[in-house]
Design a binder for these strands. Structure first.
Lengths: 98, 98
DNA sequence: TGAACAATTGAATATATATTCAATTGTTCA
DNA sequence: TGAACAATTGAATATATATTCAATTGTTCA
């Protein structure tokens, strides 16, 4: 099955998708919410990243539809729902862990 | 199967891997060499990227062991050999093309 | 209502990255 | 050998990105 040379537009989208996973903090955030959904303060504390930084990352991940937000009172819980995204991410992790 | 929260070090490696695919030019280069191996000039012409830029990208991809170089006379041919890498990349492409 | 807390936002800043340009290296072949 | 071409390299530059800080928004509950 051949993927022909991707046009600029498609390639830009593919790059954008992978860019979601291309930062250490985001990778740690994603690994944390894969197990179970987490709120911003929880992530901030577990990972040692300021709430602001976490929130900025979540905005990007939300825009890319990588994560979903669910508000519960004052807290906003984030999770990854799309199984394709989970599979893609875990495949990257597995490749590194060998 | 749970991936626990990744430590900084592992997360940095995962991020580094995905970063290989996080640029439009690199995505197009990779899509081009997936079909069959290509030399720098060929890539440069097909993609409209200077040879220098292609070469710089290839250096990064080589260092990440995403691509392999093979010299034939004056030309250097690049290819992707690791099936895990191919699968990871194609999975990203497929996700975008839906 | 207003105090307390969680989360978001925008601007500022520091750092990383992609690209270009010019010079250099490697290879072939007349 | 040396001309011709392919590829690489390093420095310069422009752009993108992550993080911080301070201010703001949203929600709860006494």
């Amino acid at each position: 099955m051949n993927i022909l040379i991707l046009d600029e537009h498609t390639a830009a989208h593919v790059a954008e998708l992978f860019r979601s996973f291309s930062d250490t903090s985001r990778v740690r955030i994603l690994s944390a919410i894969l197990g179970k959904e987490q709120n911003v303060t929880g992530l901030s504390q577990q990972l040692g990243i300021t709430e602001s930084a976490v929130s900025h990352h979540m905005r990007g991940l939300r825009q890319m539809r990588i994560v979903q937000a669910r508000r519960d009172g004052k807290e906003v819980y984030y999770s990854v729902v799309d199984p394709h995204i989970i599979e893609l991410f875990e495949q990257g992790v597995r490749h590194v862990q060998e």
